[in-house]
Design a protein around this nucleic acid. Sequence first.
DNA 1: GGATCTTTACTTTTT
DNA 2: GTAAAGATCC
Length: 805
Amino acid sequence: MVNPAGPPARPFDDDPLFGDAVPAPGPKPGGIAARALGHGRQPVYLEGLNPEQRRAVETVEGPVLVLAGAGTGKTRVLTTRIAHIIASGLAQPYQILAVTFTNKAAREMKHRIAALIGGSAEGMNWLGTFHAIGTRILRRHAELAGLRSDFTILDTDDQLRLMKQIIQAENLDEKRWPARQLAQLIDGWKNRGLTPDKVPAGDGAGFANGRGQALYALYQARLKMLNATDFGDLLVEPIRIFRQHPDVLADYQRRFRYMLVDEYQDTNTAQYLWLRLLAQNNTNICCVGDDDQSIYGWRGAEVDNILRFERDFPGAVVIRLERNYRSTAPILAAASHLIAHNEGRLGKTLFTEARDPEAAPVTVASAWDSTEEARSIGDEIESLQRKGESLDQIAILMRASFQMREFEDRFVTLGLPYRVVGGPRFYERAEIRDALAYFRATVQPADDLAFERIVNTPRRGLGDATLQICHDFARARQMPLMAAAAHLVETDELKPKARTTLRALLQAFAHWRSLLDDKPHHEVAEIILDESGYTEMWKQDRSADAPGRLENLKELIRSMQDFESLAGFLEHIALVTDTENEAGQEAVTLMTLHAAKGLEFNTVFLPGWEEGLFPHQRALDEGGRSGLEEERRLAYVGLTRARRRAYVWFASNRRVHGLWQTTVPSRFLDELPEAHVEVRESGGAGGYGGYGASRFDRSDSFGSSYSTPGWERARERTREAGAGGRAGGRPLSGPAQRLRGGATIEGELVAKSVVENPSAFTKGGRVFHQKFGNGTVAAIDGNKLTVDFDKAGRKKVLDSFLERL
DNA sequence: GGATCTTTACTTTTT
DNA sequence: GTAAAGATCC
């Protein structure tokens, strides 16, 4: 749910479609219009829009596709368009359907609309993510999907456990047919909007000897029994309802006078079908997107949806937004030139009116290995910092998250504050999920998965044996686990000890449930965690992260207070997997390219442009040409995040699955326009395009400066650590701010020394290299050696490539 | 039930 | 190489 103030405690609120036809509270259209219309001239909200943007805002009737290139004011158009529709009295806020992919985007839209039309976006009940809106629809017509309206939404973890149970129940070898794989298969079907009966014959024949489809059906049946859905169902079930109940569909079609879709290039087939159904009789649909920024094909997004728009919606008006307000001319030129290598795009040419003679070209630089890459980028960031650039305006965007580690290590050493975006989420942590399972089982006694998760957490002697008996009993009688347990404690099927414990647990749940009637839910939540012994369990835990976990639990209770009820809170977190990242201190941002979409920074570093990593080998292997094109779009997204400076890096050596490998610079480098790119080459030799081994022969590639502020800081820190107690403490203003994003760096503040075995090689010693032959060691720097090869001359090589002679 | 050994993956990830 | 999850052993 997007709006924490409106949890589903009252799922059918102020909705004329199903209740009384009372218009949403709030200002009448005339009132808003009067305010927004300035003084009889054009409405204030239209001021400052360029002609294309204005056209996209004002063309409200009929299908419209807005192709919005990076940084062309997409969100502005979307929000202004909604404001315009409301202010002109064309529709009430609740008659507008506006869908986004992420909660963040929905939130931002809400804010911006409110700012535009003055007052609030109150009444925009249908602005939200596909999933939030799908949930809303499904709760209303739950009975048509074989559910009760208080159904639970399972997360991936629950899903997986459920599938595992099904695989076991079917006597399949879980090793041979892992639940993960089944989950992927079913996910794929759901992405395509396929219910078990619609799965094409032979689809997924590779799984469990063609039983995939049957397992899917079993899984769905099991979900219904648990009164639960998974994420996919939030789309697939409404589609099914729309198809099977034309009257229901017609109601929604009547209701949604205007429809808007954000990030259309990311829609999957199910989302597309959902939209098509709703737009059948009323084609006031406006999709905004950028085919060049489609980077989620791997999870079912169909770029084709956007490419096909004009065919799907005859008479569609296509509006291109190509005027970029974000980046300098060289950055745009580089990004445009790169993306032009893709075929099958709708084609846009970004331009800017900014004519900054100082604008820096895109820089391409190289490092010997990933460690040096991190070191050099760290140095560069410090130098920018000295010039007054805010760390908040600097980001390192990488292809894969494993690349982050090297940067983290380096920044910890430098004492450079950084922030990791993404990574393990708050609500996915074990302690949070355990706590939530307690709450779920309290609110929803039929939630078997929740109950199962915590019956024996903390350990109370209710192990597999007891649970198995409960399961058998429950299955035989088709009842939830807790109900089965309630029966069993009255019999002597369980061992006396287990029986007593189980009875006490069931009584505790009943007690907590009753407390909900007369105490605020967050207090009850705290009582649950205390009385169940869960808090105590972590207090007893001596491991390093136990205090953090307790802190997280406190945070969980705190955040519950913003909600009306426990059920409302649970719904919120089922749909929202992230909490706001508080800004905190200035820090460099580290994230994946995928996570960077929609963001912008003054300075962007793009490390790891090497074949195999970027474009990623697996994307090439599995996706072929289209895989490569998606990778290229990812590169395009990366470059276009930069406002003023973009630095592209590649390393000649990188550890892949534990082994050092020599890498080849990414083909994307060759696709950058020479005129707007500067190859940083201290050696001087070799022009653009020549990334041969020769470039690494320059002698200054290792020992960089040892007088940088970071190095000084690091040295001080080492001294402090040595003097004052344990070195594991968190630096006061230092890095390690993985805000909620993941584990705080416990442990070493100083990067591990690269010197593992300094005695293995000696200066002047004779060595052998596979490629360069025999040579004499001239210098040693950690695990990097300078060797004078008899035939190949002086080279810098990693010790792992050498053999002592 | 806990400790230790073994296996496995290892791109991207929202809802 | 590494980390987490699973399996096995005491």
